[in-house]
């Protein structure tokens, strides 16, 4: 580890060579001085780096111990059991493999519901995020005084985990896809609002000014002046969000919001004997997530790299 340091010091000496020519008489002392101060700096940086690393390691280890203590089962006892549940599920699914296609057909409507929740909430969330970002960006906002209000609104919507709104809405509206849809849409609007406004901030304002000079209304300025500039990035972010929302809608199903997650919870509650159903749901969920990941990442690449139209 010493060599690169010495080499780095040598590099510094080389670059400072011009200076040393000017004051030849003091070369020896100044070189020593530079070298020692450089070494001191390196030492200090190493110390800080080491301390940071130490704090990090202490945090990780103590954090792990606390989490292990507060967990129902211990880490080391559980470690060798990780494979048990998947093995049980897989063996049972394999024994009943003839039923699997039927089960997949049976749960397909639930899958459609999960995807629908994600799609609608992404759609609504993207429209909401669009308005939040336009209203919260300097130079574009319809009411410049309200920019901080819209930004805070965006932050708060983004900070609310979907499950909070979903659980409250399930209490009021009853179970089903609508609470999940609203919950995910609110979070999506906040999250996309922030990402969108990062894009909009870099948008060229000249078209907007040009349109304003013709007397265009705010909606026209946005629609014609801003949206064409930002559309590729917006769509790319929206697709990314769609991927995330499919996962979210599956998870929300688990707390009672319908779709595949709900079926999964029921299948799990039955326990052994119905593991083939759990396996079918796992397979559907996994396949869907991977499929949409691949499709969306392909389109996102095309959008951001400007290939295709």
């Amino acid at each position: 580890m010493k060599c690169p340091v010495a080499r780095r010091a040598a590099g510094i000496l080389l670059s400072r060579g011009d200076m040393t020519v000017i004051s030849l008489n003091s070369t020896r002392t100044s070189v020593d001085g530079i070298q020692s101060s450089y070494m001191a700096q390196v030492q200090r940086r190493r110390l800080y780096g080491g301390l940071t690393l130490l704090i990090f390691v202490v945090l990780m280890v103590s954090g792990f111990n606390i989490a292990d203590d507060r967990n129902a089962g211990g880490f080391w006892e559980g470690l060798h059991q990780i494979g048990d549940y998947p093995a049980d599920v897989l063996t049972e699914a394999w024994e009943k493999r003839a039923d699997l296609p039927g089960l997949i057909v049976k749960y397909f409507p639930a899958l459609i519901e999960t995807i629908n929740i994600a799609a609608v909430s992404t759609l609504i969330g993207a429209v909401g995020g669009l308005f939040l970002s336009l209203l919260g960006t300097r130079g574009l906002a319809k009411w410049p005084r309200l920019i901080p209000v819209f930004r805070r609104l965006c932050d708060i919507m983004r900070a609310v985990p979907e499950i909070v709104i979903a659980l409250v809405l399930i209490f009021v509206l009853g179970g089903g896809p609508v609470p999940a849809m609203i919950a995910i849409a609110i979070h999506t609007a906040g999250a996309l609002g922030k990402m969108f406004s990062e894009v909009t901030e870099n948008a060229d304002l000249k078209p907007v000014e040009g349109l304003a000079s013709t007397g265009a209304r705010w909606s026209q300025r946005m629609l014609i002046g801003v949206l064409p500039q930002v559309a590729p990035n917006y769509i790319s972010y929206t697709l990314l969000r769609f991927e995330i929302n499919i996962r979210a809608s599956a998870i929300l199903g688990f707390v009672g919001a319908g779709g595949l997650g709900y079926e999964l919870r029921n299948a799990m509650a039955w326990g052994p004997g119905r593991f083939d159903e759990a396996a079918a749901i796992f397979a559907l969920l996994f396949g869907t997530i991977v499929l949409f990941d691949q499709v969306s990442s392909r389109y996102r690449n095309r959008l951001t790299e400007g290939k295709g139209q």
Binding site: D84, L285, F286, I289
Partner: peptide
């Protein structure tokens, strides 16, 4: 596989809790 399924699988091995 997603966090949901991992949670379900891991909860069988480690029980509920932060770990």
């Amino acid at each position: 596989v997603d966090a949901l399924i991992w949670t379900v699988v891991l909860a069988r091995a480690f029980g509920p809790g932060p770990l």
